[in-house]
Design a protein around this nucleic acid. Structure first.
Lengths: 354, 354
DNA sequence: TTGTAGGCGTTATCAT
DNA sequence: ATGATAACGCCTACAA
């Protein structure tokens, strides 16, 4: 019994078809007896394939959905016999450089470069020699990338509102200079256009993704002469700000105002009162897709999302909850009714502790 | 120029002291020229040390501080020339088993088993042959573990309030059956005892870590005949519930009620209005400590936290912000003033959307 | 002061 | 149908 024989049966190599069932059993028995496990490092050395994928991320964000990305990557990788190890650079150049060294020296088979927020990245030249995909980011050097389909996602959000009968839809978009916000603006416009509604620029505003920003912009929208009957926000957090602004003026959701968020960040959307309709950012699927691009061919289960050319877009599904209703028949009063308050704290909104 | 020579200078082996500066330079030059990188897999095969640590976690929690753990582990590991790769099992037995196989087959040098919430764990027997530390969890099989010093942390929280002059301190603890809640109860008692204040069992309640729970229990406490002038909560999220309850009855923080949270979960604490005083769970430091136990001896920088025997406790520092003030001189009205409301929604608290 | 050779645990090629 | 044997890239005694 030679090592070669063992190798055959352990990996059940097709060429091992020629083996006697007897020897095969003998090997298997020995394996069990000795609790034998192939040394994968040695195997890698020999085969020149480590079956490891490195994930370089600028920051492990404080937002939970980033974990979905990791889960998606890991599950797909494991299904294909791969391992993923993630390295966080935190935007620190020294750490980033170290990470590159490690990837090269440790014989990783492939790299995923990912960012917390969708943006353009610069891929280190040292990675030219290794398969790479960009996840939630993009570059101008012809690397493949996996991105959320923001434009159609935003369109879905608007359609949720249009379907309920709204025609004046306020839009508190994200930071103007971001890619996502640009796409979302297009999606919003697409939806209106398809519905034959004129684009009213006074209805769209640029927020900064913070609760407070949502609150502020919603205030402006709601207090305008011809206020919207529905507001969509660039993320769930800002949508919470919209809730606050509505509540402050005694407006009920969804009876008096419909709201839709973006991201489906459960902390804000599912747990809101009433539960917030939103659009889900498909982090899990994106993670899967990125790994899939790298190890396509290895069996995994379901089909990968359709990729056309260099960029694979993953759809953002609308999730309808309780924050959307038909528009109020009577227009919202132009200026908010001065509510009697029992306390001296009329100025400070009592909410917003989170 | 032989491979041995190269090996010496690349690793600057002490035995290479005998080398001519000339040859040394020649090697270095060649390294630069060829962009040579030692193959760490091959090295591992030879040295039987992979310099890799596996992190098995039950779930990558939705809570951001888990990321701090990972950062702490990674930074300490990198400083010592190690790599960490984390594998999430999500409580799935099959995944857990796979993870164990991977750890063994891939020649990881050590394992960290960690959990999202402090609890007892069962360590797979297959790990008997490999250095292991438990992080944020513990077992009864004599494994080393790194834990937050909950008891003294809770004591610190209470002391924050005592120092401000409070003597009636409500405590909305966490789930009764958890280790952390047990420790925290002791810490609360320690603080009161040291201040010579009698323990009033009507002031301590068991919540379930949700905002809503904090809101409910705070309501009970504040509406009791002899309400506390300060409330400490088992986590920041419940403390937000306390804020809500206070605001609902027109109580200002910290003028009418002092509040202290636990965790320092920024989403809830730092961003609250007013900013919440709390106690920080030292996830980053715990991550560092866990790796440190495993690779002690490798230079890293600062000194590790003191560990006595099998468990290394890492202190939870109080962080004072704006939610604590002196107790009100006049007692809070026993029953809340019936506030006039302008809306029909008197029942439903307008807050709590997050 | 430097070079040679053996072996870490695999896999792959070639004999047997 | 199976057994030797070389090689993957590195480290390390030991020899030169």
């Amino acid at each position: 019994m030679s090592s070669a024989t063992v190798s055959f049966v352990v990996n059940d190599d097709p060429k091992a078809q020629t083996l006697t069932q007897a020897t095969r059993d003998k090997v298997l028995e020995a394996v069990r007896l000795l609790d034998y496990r192939p040394n994968l490092q040695a195997r890698s050395l020999r085969t020149q394939r480590s079956h490891s994928i490195a994930v370089l991320t600028d920051e492990l964000t404080a937002v939970p959905y980033e974990n979905s990305t990791i889960r998606g990557m890991q599950e797909r990788a494991w299904a294909g016999g791969f391992m993923v190890t993630t390295m966080t650079t935190g935007g620190n150049a020294a750490l980033a450089e170290h990470a590159v060294e490690v990837v090269l020296a440790r014989q990783f088979d492939a790299v995923i470069v990912t960012t917390a927020f969708t943006r353009e990245v610069e891929v280190p030249a040292a990675f030219d020699s290794i398969p790479l995909v960009l996840l939630n980011c993009f570059s101008r050097d012809g690397h493949r990338s996996v991105l959320p389909a923001e434009r159609s996602g935003s369109r879905s959000a608007a359609e949720l509102l249009l379907a309920a009968g709204h025609t004046r839809i306020g839009f508190i978009n994200g930071l103007r200079e971001t890619w996502a916000a640009g796409q979302r603006r297009l999606g919003y416009r697409d939806a209106l256009r398809a519905a034959g509604i004129a684009y009213d620029r006074t209805l769209v505003r640029w927020g900064d993704y913070q609760t407070d920003s949502g609150h502020r912009h919603a205030t402006v929208l709601l207090d305008s002469p011809n206020p919207p009957t529905a507001i969509m926000a660039g993320n769930d957090r800002m949508a919470v700000g919209v809730y606050y602004a509505a509540y402050q003026r005694g407006l009920r959701i969804p009876e008096d105002l419909s709201v839709v968020g973006y991201d489906d960040h459960a902390e804000f959307s599912a747990h809101a009162v009433p539960a917030m309709s939103t659009v889900r950012l498909p982090y899990y699927e994106m993670g899967r897709a990125a790994v899939d691009l790298l190890i396509a061919g290895t069996p995994a289960g379901d089909a990968p999302p359709t990729g056309h050319g260099l960029v694979t877009e993953v759809e953002c599904q609308p999730v309808a909850r309780k924050s959307i209703g038909p528009p109020r028949s009577d227009p919202i009063a132009p200026s908010p009714p001065a509510r009697p308050r029992d306390q001296a704290r009329d100025d400070a909104p009592p909410e917003n502790p989170t």
